[in-house]
C-alpha cells in the first residue's frame, strides 16, 4: 500500500476537489442548496453540520455524482477516476445475500476483478475495522455497529481519495457511536484518507473533524466554517478536556446562529 507518511497541517494540504457556486433546485421550486462553495483538501476531515433539511445529503449526492448541480461546478483536481470515491450511508446498505467479505469485495467486483485477485485487500480492510474473523458471516448475524464497520471497510477497500459519510452513526446507540468515532479516527491515522462526514451532532463533529462546515436551511447553504486546531491523534481523553468543551460550545453557538439566521430570513 502506498500511503502518505503523514497528513500535513491545515493550510498546507493539496487541493482535492472544489465546489464553486453550486445550486441545486428540485422540481423547479425546492432550493435544496444555494451558492455552495467548498474546497476539499487532501487529508481534510470535514464535517457538514446542520439541522435536517439544510442540504447536507444533497451536497454529498452532488459530490458523489448521483445528481448534477442546477448551476455551478464540482471539479476534481486531476479528474475523477474509478475507485476515487467511497461512500457510507446512514444505513449499512449491505447486500443481505452476500457474506461480509463478498460485500467488501463489491467495489472491485464491479470493476471486473475476481475475488482471488483482491483477497488481500478485502482481508486488510476487514482487519482495519476489526472484523477479519467475520468474513464468512452474513449481515443478519451482525450487530448494527458491526454492519456499519463492514460498510466502512467496503468504502475504504479501494483506498479512495475521498470518503463520503452521510450520518453513518446516527442510528446507533451512544456507546457504539463513540467507539466507532474512536475507531474511525484511528483508521484515518492509518490510511490518511480524506473524509466528508455529515452529522447533526455538535459533539461528533468537534471530536472527529479538523474543519466544521456549519450549514443553514431554507435555502440550504453554508453559514460559516470553523476549524478544530487540536492535533490528531485524538482519543477518548480529548472528550474530557476543557478545550473540547469550549470547542463544542463555540460550534453549538455557530449552529444556533445558523438556525437563527433562518428564523430572521423567514420572519
Amino acid at each position: 500500500m502506498t500511503l502518505p507518511s503523514a497528513i500535513p497541517p491545515l493550510g498546507e494540504r493539496q487541493k482535492l476537489l472544489e465546489m464553486s457556486g453550486v445550486d441545486k433546485v428540485f422540481n423547479g421550486d425546492v432550493v435544496a442548496l444555494k451558492g455552495m462553495n467548498l474546497t476539499v483538501n487532501q487529508g481534510d476531515f470535514i464535517s457538514l453540520l446542520g439541522p435536517s433539511g439544510c442540504g447536507k445529503s444533497t451536497a454529498l449526492r452532488l459530490i458523489a455524482g448521483l445528481s448534477r448541480p442546477t448551476s455551478g461546478s464540482i471539479r476534481w483536481e486531476g479528474g475523477q477516476a474509478r475507485g476515487d470515491l467511497g461512500v457510507v450511508f446512514q444505513e449499512p446498505t449491505l447486500m443481505p445475500w452476500a457474506t461480509v467479505s463478498q460485500n467488501v469485495w463489491l467495489p472491485f467486483r464491479l470493476r471486473g476483478k475476481g475475488y482471488r485477485e483482491v483477497r488481500d485487500e478485502v482481508l486488510w480492510a476487514l482487519k482495519m475495522v476489526g472484523l477479519e474473523k467475520f468474513q464468512n458471516a452474513y449481515p443478519r448475524e451482525l450487530s448494527g455497529g458491526m454492519k456499519m464497520r463492514v460498510s466502512i471497510a467496503r468504502a475504504m477497500v479501494t483506498e479512495p481519495r475521498l470518503i463520503l459519510m452521510d450520518e453513518p452513526f446516527a442510528a446507533l446507540d451512544e456507546i457504539t457511536r463513540m467507539k466507532l468515532n474512536d475507531d474511525l479516527l484511528a483508521l484515518r491515522e492509518k490510511i490518511k484518507c480524506t473524509v466528508i462526514f455529515v452529522t447533526h451532532s455538535v459533539y461528533e463533529s468537534v471530536f472527529l473533524s479538523d474543519r466544521i462546515v456549519v450549514m443553514a436551511a431554507r435555502p440550504g447553504r453554508v453559514s460559516t466554517e470553523l476549524t478544530v486546531p487540536t492535533p490528531y491523534p485524538r482519543n477518548e481523553v480529548f472528550r474530557t478536556t476543557p478545550e473540547y468543551g469550549a470547542l463544542c460550545r463555540d460550534t453549538s453557538d455557530a449552529l444556533h446562529g445558523a438556525m437563527h439566521e433562518h428564523n430572521e430570513a423567514s420572519a
Binding site: R61, A64, G65, L66, R82, L85, V87, F89, E91, T93, M95, L106, P107, R109, L110, R111
Partner: peptide, 21 residues
C-alpha cells in the same frame, strides 16, 4: 434498496452487473 442502487451507480456498475449482482 435505493441506497444499494446508488452505491452501484457510484461504483460505475453496468446494467448487466446491476441485474446479475
Amino acid at each position: 434498496d435505493h441506497n444499494l442502487r446508488d452505491l452501484y451507480k457510484i461504483y460505475g456498475a453496468s446494467r448487466w452487473q446491476r441485474l446479475r449482482y
